[in-house]
Design a protein around this nucleic acid. Structure first.
Length: 370
DNA sequence: AAGTGCGGGTAAA
DNA sequence: TTTACCCGCACTT
């Protein structure tokens, strides 16, 4: 994967250089270019040593989003925000789901939450979870840098991720919601009892239907068709997400929206199941990360304590963009963007198109739990 | 509850 | 000096 990552980086650099100013700066430069004629589409999965210039209007850039699990790192420089990669949480048993997928959970960003997370069990096999830390930057985690200058947001990544992609933030949130819902619907759940009572009174409530509407957070629900479309309230318009896999397809600076239809809306079914790939060494020791999993599985997760798991665990949920990740200003253009830019190709053809698969199979996986 | 950003602090190279 | 990382705090989601 490293070579592939490198190739990808080269590819991106090529692309960048074609567009001029892109590579002639470093995040630490005193002055950054302000004569940028084209800004990049937001990149949800930046990897390798890449730089991007986003519009300051880009919501995702404003929020310093990444689908990698990046935590804030203090670099004692308030002008440059630095984040380092937390890696990915894998199953200590290296299990696979029925459909052959590996478990790649998103490490919780919050230290406490991450410690809690590691005491939980694999949602698939109930085995211990293990944090596979990122060592893609000289043995240290990949770092991302963000800097706002004028009407642009400069992004620079150092290091190539040496581990599989975790769930995206929204996938992780969705999973948590599902778990909550499942807990709420455990046989002993008063809530479920109440619903059953109502059901028995009305005789009209199909058992299959109520669940989605009761999932804890509306924005975390999985609307059947538009699941990732506007999954998030922060996505005021149907943007083609992340077509995150597209290259930093340049757009004219200042050009923000126009009207092509969202590519993701017709990309449902394009996801190629990612089976564990990549150079990560699952047996690597914890190293510097004090939060490395201890392999114990002391705390029963709500999911497993009920004696069943999601019938087909959604992990790794389709590794792809979520609309909110593009909540910002990239509404179009990528429809014509050549698929060659798919970063996912690095992973061995993990993705075939540069579109947002809208996590349809996550959706399909989530529903069976009803 | 978890995510995010800031900043004080320490340690190692 | 630079880089990595820990921690607590405040604020947001």
């Amino acid at each position: 994967m490293l070579k592939a990552a490198h190739d990808s980086a080269v590819e991106q650099e090529d692309s960048a250089s074609r567009h001029g100013e892109m590579t002639s700066w470093d995040i630490n430069d005193i002055k950054l270019p302000q004569d940028v004629s084209q800004t990049d589409w937001f990149q949800e999965w930046p990897d390798s040593y890449v730089k991007h210039i986003y519009s300051s209007e880009d919501k995702n850039a404003q929020r310093h989003h990444s689908s990698w699990a990046m935590r804030n790192t203090n670099n004692h420089n308030s002008r440059i925000l630095k984040k380092s990669c937390l890696g990915v949480v894998v199953c200590g048993n290296d299990c696979s789901t029925l459909d052959g997928r590996k478990i790649y959970l998103r490490p919780a960003i919050c230290d406490k939450a991450r410690q809690k997370q590691q005491r939980k069990c694999c949602p698939n096999c109930n085995g211990p979870l293990r944090l596979l830390s990122c060592r893609g930057h000289g043995g240290y985690p990949v770092t991302n840098f963000w800097r706002h200058e004028g009407q642009f947001i400069f992004f620079q990544s150092k290091g190539a991720h040496d581990h599989p992609r975790p769930e995206t933030k929204l996938e992780a949130e969705a999973r948590r919601s599902i778990q909550k819902a499942k807990t709420a619907f455990s046989p002993s759940s008063p809530r479920l009892k109440r619903i059953q009572e109502i059901e028995s009174l009305t005789g009209a409530m199909p058992t299959q239907e109520p669940l989605p509407s009761i999932l804890s957070k509306p924005e975390s629900q999985a609307p059947p068709v538009n699941f990732m479309g506007c999954f998030n309230k922060s996505c005021p318009e149907p943007t083609p997400s992340s077509c995150s896999e597209r290259l930093p397809q340049p757009r004219r600076a200042g050009e923000d929206r126009a009207g092509d239809g969202p590519a993701w809306s017709r990309s449902l079914a394009q996801h190629v199941l990612p089976v564990a790939k990549g150079p990560h060494d699952p047996f690597r020791s914890g190293g510097h990360d004090s939060l490395q999993g201890d392999g114990s599985c002391g705390e029963k997760s709500p999911l497993t304590s009920s004696g069943s798991c999601l019938s087909a665990p959604p992990y790794p949920a389709p590794q792809g963009g979520l609309c909110p990740m593009a909540g910002g200003a990239q509404p179009h253009r990528q429809l014509s963007a050549p698929p060659r830019g798919c970063e996912g190709d690095r992973g061995g053809g993990r993705h075939q198109v540069c579109l947002n698969y809208c996590n349809n199979d996550m959706f399909l996986n989530l529903y069976p739990l009803q």
